[in-house]
Simulated assay, not measured.
Amino acid sequence: MSRIVVRTDRPLVRRAPQVAAPPLASTAFQPDPYVDYGRFLTPEGGILLIYKDLDERLRHTLWRLFAWSGFTGLEGWFLLHHSPVQIGWVNFIAFLAACAVNWLIVAKPVELYRRIEIRPDCLIIDGSDVFWRRLMEVSWPALQANEEGNQVLCGIYGTRFVEYLTLRRFDELDRMPEVFAAHLQDAMRQLWHHPQS
């Protein structure tokens, strides 16, 4: 007995060409819209807000003046007594350039990250200043604008009006104070419920 094998022609499948998906590496990059800002849950049951601020304490200003005068004085002494160039006006221009460069180096403001944590019973600023919820009898802290255009978190604590912290804008497009205000109010609503009247 013989077998007969019958083969049919394969049908031609016509498909439109598919566009290749972009490589996985390019879709994995997502820019972070929260620049120098974060909101986290803490193990103690609180909500932690971290943001970048400028440290404008007097000690940094004094340190800048000390560093600028020290290095500028050293460079002036070198140019006056040990300069290989014996032309006075060239040394004077070099001294002015050194003054300007030194000032540009020390004039950059000091940046630091500030932390504010809302817990069910208190408000903690920078991990050390504790303000108890039971002593905020009149209202919750709120943000108010000051003369410089910054936002100040303030409110009545006990019998005193307290400025808890200041939120500074880094430029005209910086909207961190508005985002901070929304997240702070949301955290207080979640953990403190309603303000006592």
Rank of each mutant, 00 (worst) to 15 (best):
V179K: 10
A20F: 05
E178S: 11
F66Q: 06
L49M: 15
R134N: 13
V101A: 13
R189H: 09
W132V: 07
E117A: 07
T27I: 14
A94K: 07
P17I: 07
L135A: 13
L24F: 13
Y37M: 03
L65K: 06
T61C: 01
A21Y: 09
P84I: 08
I156C: 06
A142W: 05
H183Y: 02
Y34Q: 08
Y51N: 08
T72L: 10
M188L: 15
G88I: 09
I4Y: 09
D36R: 12
A100F: 15
E56N: 14
S197R: 01
D9K: 12
S139A: 04
N150C: 03
S83N: 14
Y37V: 09
G73I: 03
W68H: 13
S69H: 01
G38W: 04
D55W: 03
G76Y: 08
E137L: 03
C99T: 06
F92I: 14
W103K: 04
H183C: 02
I47H: 03
E44S: 13
I93N: 00
V179L: 06
L135Q: 15
E163A: 14
V101D: 01
L184N: 05
P22Y: 11
Y34P: 01
Y37P: 07
N150W: 01
G88E: 09
Y157C: 11
I4R: 13
L184D: 02
F40P: 00
S69R: 00
R10S: 12
H183M: 00
V6I: 10
S69Y: 01
I125L: 15
L135W: 13
G155N: 04
R39H: 09
C154D: 01
